[in-house]
């Protein structure tokens, strides 16, 4: 069952053609990793999925709802799509727990008690339940990113978008975040994940999308992608990142 359908999407920043006729279908439960060189439009693409960036042409349908500039429709989509950012973007003036219960209470209308129970359970699943009452500034980068994942999961999303979730982390914290993401993948979450962690991609991804200059150059299953890439630029890219 298709849960995300990106069809013929274009986006321009001024005169710059940032997305060029991008099409991609993602089935429910599928794990898709997007990779490509810097500036290739990976962030732009996943930000179009939940309307943080507006696409100029083509169509994006998330769980039956078309992404448009209608605020109500956008909000409905955003409650079903969780997003994790490179820089965590927790709200620094709220505790971890308050970060987590904010949207469930305001957007989903959960009671304070229900939201709290769910948040604590999810914080426990990302192994930082004991940090619930601390402020984000008091946590390590890895803990902050795990809190941010828990915050997104509190909305019980059907898809999770990740934009280079480990790029701002010190090496020793990358693993703790990737472990959480792997657990999420095993639990059957639909994931669309921009990352340069190729070992993670190889282990988790059902399909890998390679982007360059705003276009999708190749889509392949992980095995084919790494052992027998079809596009010459994919090979160049893989050579570069594996040194």
């Amino acid at each position: 069952m298709t849960i995300l359908d990106i069809a013929g999407v274009h986006k321009w920043y001024g005169d710059y053609h940032a997305l060029r006729n991008v099409s991609l279908r993602v089935d429910a439960g599928e794990r898709v990793v997007i990779c490509g060189p810097s500036g290739s439009g990976k962030s732009t693409l996943i930000r179009c999925v939940n309307g943080l960036a507006a696409h100029d042409a083509g169509e994006i349908v998330v769980a039956g709802e078309t992404v448009s500039d209608d605020p109500a429709a956008l909000r409905r989509i955003r409650t079903r799509v969780g997003m994790v950012f490179q820089d965590f973007n927790l709200f620094p003036h709220l505790t971890v727990l308050q970060n987590c219960v904010l949207a469930p209470m305001r957007v989903s209308g959960l009671s304070a008690g229900k939201a709290r129970d769910m948040a604590l359970a999810l914080l426990d699943s990302v192994r930082i339940a004991e940090q619930a009452d601390k402020f984000p500034g008091q946590l390590s980068g890895g803990q902050q990113q795990r809190a941010a994942i828990a915050r997104a999961l509190c909305m019980q999303p059907e898809i999770m978008l990740f934009d280079e979730p480990t790029s701002a982390l010190d090496a020793e914290m990358v693993k703790e975040v990737l472990d959480i993401m792997k657990a999420l993948a095993r639990a059957g979450m639909t994931m669309l994940c921009v990352t340069h962690e190729m070992a993670f991609a190889r282990e988790v991804a059902d399909r890998i999308v390679f982007m360059d200059e705003g276009q999708i150059l190749e889509v392949a299953d992980a095995q084919t992608f790494f052992t027998d890439p079809g596009h010459p630029r994919t090979r160049v890219f893989l050579d570069k990142i594996s040194l």
Binding site: N50, L52, R75, R76, R78, T79, V81, G82, M83, F85, D87, N89, L90, F91, L102, A103, R106, V107, A148, R151, A152, M155
Partner: peptide, 11 residues
């Protein structure tokens, strides 16, 4: 980014 992550939560 603070605004965007709040919007992404559906606020």
């Amino acid at each position: 980014a603070q605004m965007e992550s709040a919007q992404a939560l559906g606020l």
